[in-house]
Design a protein around this nucleic acid. Structure first.
Lengths: 235, 235
DNA sequence: ACAAAAGTGTTAAATGTACACCCATGC
DNA sequence: GCATGGGTGTACATTTAACACTTTTGT
């Protein structure tokens, strides 16, 4: 007694609308930040929400996420990864909308983030001081945060939040902020350096009122080489 | 210069079709198995594919996956988790179809799996001897396999593949099959027992031609208690 | 009695964790 | 010269990995 949708392919079922939403993370001096956009239309007019929008028929989901990111925040060429797909019935009060959520990592120094594009009000918020969010976006954001916390420990994605050249202190600070606990300086350096996936440069920090720290860069090639040999990144 | 989809909500964009597909894993004597269904219609008529179908407007994604699983394989009440959403443009030759993939774990002894329901030909295949698959299902299956391999190590989901009561040897075998490497018997037992998440029963195996092994059961309560205290499962 | 798998401890190596001081630099 | 963070090593505890024999049961 099962219907066979293939038989009358395009008529069988009404379709949910399909959108993408993106949780964009960045690292501030002391906090993990998320970019939000203030809605200028009902529903949830005036409330903050994740950047996102409809998936077009002629673009993949990744492309849709990249396009929306570009249109709403000006961000381009950044780390983007699919998170989860949300399909509860009343996520959107207007009609059935399924959204494919992504999360993105961006280095604030390297990218010119337009705080406001397209007459929309966009801003960074600390993940620890979030406003009320539209739709189920608080859920999505919490899941993205959770995923980042988990994944940063066994994939070298944290580097996406730092400038190309960074100090070991910055790297440690990143992990401390994301994992929300303090790490031992000596043990941290020992571990990172022993993995041989960061490359010492001949440069040092600039404009600091104390001894300047050496700058390092993430060595993607070395990482891939090691990974092929069964190496497993872990912090 | 950005369109505002909210303004003319239901007319702005044509919508992709939305489906769910499920990778159902089970454990055979020696292999990790997957359930496949032979297609009885074009496209890919006669080829094997993952069970799945259209998402209805009045059901969540999880509900759709459960319904399709029930309709196509008779399986009910089993472990089911969202995997990833696939939205490449030409996944389906007929038109744009986005699919939310799930994976499921089932214990062959405890469930009466209908090998063929609804005049469809369904069968179990070893993940090591798969036929050609329709659409991008080979991709999806590989991703599910990868996810299972990764997740089984830090979440106690492996138990879903075993009967309620199992021997430690069976549990070890499960990990050996999924991780595709041999484990040391003594070290494995030591580790599992030290976690205190399996409960010894007073029963032993039946009908074996040698000393019968003690049966254990997974202790969900104990697991949750430990997890709250910061315990982290890991094999 | 023998075939088959169950069950059980010890040791060495590797890894993780805790901890404190001197150094270089800018002001 | 002092305030600030940069940079470094050692000792102890914990975890992992390697390894072999005796016991129980069914045939």
């Amino acid at each position: 007694m099962r219907s066979k949708p293939e038989a009358k392919f395009q008529y069988e079922y009404a379709r949910p609308a399909l959108t993408v939403d993106i949780v964009v993370f960045a690292l501030d001096a002391d906090d993990l930040m998320v970019m939000l956009i203030q809605r200028d239309l009902e529903p949830f007019e005036g409330q903050w929400a994740l950047p996102g929008g409809f998936v077009h028929l002629d673009e993949t989901l990744d492309d849709a996420a990249r396009r929306e990111l570009q249109e709403e925040t000006g961000l381009q060429g950044i780390f983007l990864e699919q998170l989860y797909t949300y399909g509860d019935l009343n996520r959107d009060p207007r009609e059935r909308v399924v959204t494919v959520a992504y999360y993105a990592l961006v280095n604030l120094e390297g990218h010119n983030v337009q705080a406001s594009t397209d007459a929309r009000n966009a801003a960074w918020f600390s993940v620890n001081e979030l406003p009320d969010l539209a739709f189920d976006h608080a859920n999505i954001l919490a899941a993205a945060h959770e995923r980042l916390r988990g994944k940063v420990r066994y994939q070298p994605i944290g580097f996406e939040l730092l400038p190309e050249k960074f100090t070991l202190r910055q790297l440690q600070h990143l992990y401390e902020v994301i994992l929300d606990r303090e790490l031992d300086k000596r043990n941290f350096r020992k571990k990172v350096l022993s993995m041989e996936i960061v490359q010492e440069t001949d440069e040092i920090e600039k404009d600091v009122a104390h001894r300047a720290a050496r700058l390092y860069r993430f060595d993607q090639k070395a990482y891939e080489r090691l990974t092929e040999q069964g190496f497993h990144f872990e912090i």
